[in-house]
Amino acid sequence: MSAAVAPDEIRKHLVKLDRSRVCVDPNDIVEIVESVMASVHGDSDSINVKLHEEITALAAYIQQAKAEISSIGADEIKHKFIPDAAEELSAVVTAAETATHEIFEAIETVEALSETVAPEAANVIAEAATRIYEACAFQDITGQRISKVVKMLERVEHKVGAMLAAFGEGVMPPGDQAGPACKPAPASAPAEPAAPNKDDELMNGPQLPENAMSQDEIDALLASFD
């Protein structure tokens, strides 16, 4: 590339680039090129040399980034590791839920029998059943925690997908190497999460113990309104 290339010529190239559906905002490239051109001073030859060095360094940087993305297996992360991890976590939730309801079936059967035993024994059964119900709340809490992790994985999957689409050739699998064009996201790719509204921002699920208010603290806060 020559430093003598006129901005109009650059823009023509960018229009062409845009028509090829490359995932780069042409305005960003204009900004980059103009900033590079503004950064060079001196006669025409030194401008040529300096600009060539800058562009060469930029190209090397992009190639290095593509090589690094390729070496970490970003495509495999997006298409295999993250979906597999989400699937495994969902299986954990399902298994825990199934087991919990088995426990419920058993204790409800025992509770039904308590009507046929002495009152003292019935009380013991009722107390034991209560403790079992309380303990089984773990499934609700763990389920919510795992759902949070799955949502985080989906966000990572989306970001990795966006990175793959941006760098295109060289990091995409052979079947996907149609150049760095903005292809439609595959059906399995998660959509960009919608911006949360004020109420959505209050839905964070279970907190870690050090961040959670206790029931006593909540009661005190509620009482402060009276």
């Binding site: 609700d140 809490i141 919510q144 209050l202 839905m203 964070n204 699920g205 279970p206 907190q207 961040n211 959670a212 208010m213 909540i218 806060l221 509620l222 309104f225």
Partner: peptide, 13 residues
């Protein structure tokens, strides 16, 4: 609820 932040309690109240 598992939502145990003060802003949740305040919003609910």
């Amino acid at each position: 609820t598992a939502e145990s932040k003060s802003e949740n309690v305040i919003a609910a109240k």
